[in-house]
């Protein structure tokens, strides 16, 4: 077939665009019909379509230049290409089957659990809080509701018996735990003689019976406060023994988070 030049017309570019899209199979609907019409009626468009099909056919059969080199790697090449230093670390972090992710998740989980335990969260079996919880719990459960004063609603229980304080705490909606942990210098105790000492404080002061309001001397109150402080320190709050646990847990958490972040950075870099 002799070559027929595409005759330039005003819409030649638009025709060419339609014909090349038709040749590529990218047209549908009205555009497809218009392109087919052009190919049937316009000699230049028909020639262009035939040329494009011929070029496309020749491209498929285009021979590849022969390879002149063997691209296998020598041991020297491999040694030079092996990642070293920080690249090796990055590769380890980004490796799809590496243990980095489970390791990091495990460390972070251990850290969080350790921090919660050292903070003495209820229900997590803190060494410091367990006995207090059990003793208070037993009193709450079995102790008689002998709060004769009936003033539990305000939380200001006059001088409680060993069982009165938990009962009052329960009545006022407070959990026994904060009562056991109550700070001696806190507002309820410092408010006056009507403040309720804790069970431990009361026991330490040798008070077997309730003390009427106003009869507690300031000396006795001070003694109570001191004892309360000691009791609170030894029972509820994280003592000096828990500090290493907290520090170690924070370290584990930080290590886990850092590992996860480093893996994310390495993965991003690998992409």
């Amino acid at each position: 077939m002799p070559p027929v030049a595409h005759v330039p017309v005003a819409a030649a570019a638009a025709h060419a665009a339609l014909v090349v899209a038709l040749d590529a199979g990218d047209l549908a609907g009205a555009d497809f019909a218009a392109a087919e019409r052009l190919r049937a009626t316009c000699p230049g468009c028909a020639s262009l379509a035939a040329d494009l099909a011929a070029i496309r056919g020749a491209l498929v059969a285009l021979p590849a230049p022969a390879r002149r080199r063997d691209h296998r790697l020598t041991p020297e090449d491999a040694a030079g290409l092996r990642p070293a230093g920080w690249r090796r670390v990055l590769d380890w972090l980004a490796a799809p089957r590496s243990a980095v992710r489970p390791l990091a998740t495990g460390l972070a989980t251990l850290g969080i659990v350790g921090l919660l335990v050292s903070a003495g969260l209820p229900g997590l079996g803190s060494a410091g809080s367990a006995p207090v919880l059990s003793s208070v719990g037993s009193q709450v459960e079995y102790g008689p509701p002998d709060d004769s004063s009936g003033s539990g609603a305000g939380g200001a229980v006059p001088a409680p018996s060993p069982t009165a304080a938990p009962a009052a705490g329960e009545a006022s909606g407070a959990s026994p735990r904060p009562l056991a942990n109550a700070t001696p210098a806190g507002p309820p105790l410092a408010a006056g003689p009507s403040a309720a000492p804790t069970q431990a404080g009361a026991a330490a002061a040798g008070e077997a019976s309730p003390t009427p309001p106003g009869e507690r001397s300031s000396v006795a109150g001070a003694a109570d406060d001191t004892t309360d402080a000691g009791a609170a320190k030894s029972e509820g709050s994280p003592g000096p023994g828990m500090a290493p646990v907290a520090i170690a847990s924070a370290g584990l958490l930080a290590a886990g988070v850092l590992l996860l972040l480093a893996r994310a950075v390495a993965l991003r870099r690998a992409r």
């Binding site: 077939m1 040329d51 011929a54 070029i55």
Partner: peptide
């Protein structure tokens, strides 16, 4: 991608216009 292929084919055809007898 489509646009590059379309424009590339038109460019090839323009360059090869004088030698299309080889392809037909």
């Amino acid at each position: 991608v489509k646009s590059r292929i379309h424009r590339g084919r038109l460019a090839l055809r323009a360059i090869l216009a004088e030698r299309m007898e080889l392809f037909h």
